[in-house]
Computed example of a mutant assay.
Amino acid sequence: MARLEPYFPKSHGKPRVDDRRVLSGIIFINRNGLRWRDAPKEYGPHKTLYNRWNRWSDKGIFAQMMVGLAAEHSEKNTVMIDATYLKAHRTASSLGQKGGRGRLIGRTKGGMNTKLHAICDSRGRPLNLFVTAGQASDYIGARALCDSLPDVDWLLGDRGYDADWFREALKDKGIHACIPGRKQRKATVKYDKRRYKRRNRIEIMFGRLKDWRRVATRYDRCPKVFLSAIALAATVIYWL
């Protein structure tokens, strides 16, 4: 709690309900994928949990927690980039959303999905996250996360990130790309196969995030709230 308190918004007027109890209840609900009304009584009224979750998610508090704590990573050697599919429940994908940029849910061969793009350090700890619709290309996530890459020597990625513009962008940043070439390329792309084997750590990171049921299955219609659930899981698992 001492590490998280600097990211809490200031309380105005009436003192806020105990932050430790409410945050513990929010974590319990997200980890087990329960309805808010099913929260144990020890965490207090479920409406309090839901209101705090909804209000702080809208302000981006949980995403700020993860980004702020991840800024202490001190990674100087290698980062990894990859993406994974997160299945959208019918409660999140039903009906359309008026205005905004949509719910970021797309149809793929596996059904309705949201795509999570992530950058992690050499230990498999997430540094930055980005969500798109399920049918979006890996290049969209790479373009969005490229500016937030830390000052490192290597970036590991699979064939989905084999694009000339991305390699040039990494070169301009002084980062060596360890990305195998697509089969359609006429010229073979050389890469460090021994170093590339370490990329399994980002796959392990995705697997641990999906242990949280509210991350593995998207129940939230609002993409900002869903990203908050992912950021909260990443914070609890890796940065506390």
Rank of each mutant, 00 (worst) to 15 (best):
T132S: 00
W165A: 00
S148A: 12
V131E: 05
T132P: 10
Y139I: 15
K193G: 09
D147W: 12
R167I: 08
R167D: 15
P126S: 11
N128A: 13
L209N: 07
D162Q: 02
R198T: 04
G124M: 06
L127G: 05
D162N: 05
D164I: 03
L209F: 00
V131K: 01
T188E: 14
G157W: 04
F206K: 03
L170Q: 03
G160A: 04
H176E: 08
K193V: 11
G124A: 05
R182L: 13
P180H: 00
K183Y: 14
N200F: 12
P126G: 12
G134P: 10
E203Y: 02
A133E: 01
I119S: 06
W154R: 06
T132K: 05
A118H: 03
D147N: 14
F130T: 02
G141N: 08
A187N: 14
G207P: 01
D172E: 13
I179H: 03
G141R: 06
A133L: 06
A144E: 10
D147C: 12
W154T: 13
R143H: 09
R185G: 03
G157N: 02
Y191M: 07
R159W: 00
P180M: 05
I204E: 07
D164F: 08
R201Y: 11
D172I: 12
K186W: 14
L145R: 12
L156H: 06
I202Q: 02
R159T: 10
R167V: 09
G207V: 08
K186S: 14
R198C: 13
F166L: 12
K186H: 15
L155Q: 01
D162P: 01
G160S: 08
S122K: 00
L145C: 12
G157D: 01
A144N: 07
S137K: 10
S122F: 07
A187H: 14
R208P: 04
R198P: 10
I140P: 05
G134H: 10
G134Q: 10
F206C: 02
R143M: 08
Y139G: 13
N128C: 12
P150Q: 11
K193N: 10
I204N: 11
V189H: 13
L156R: 06
G134I: 11
A136E: 09
G181P: 15
F166K: 06
L156S: 01
I204R: 15
R208E: 02
N200V: 00
F206G: 05
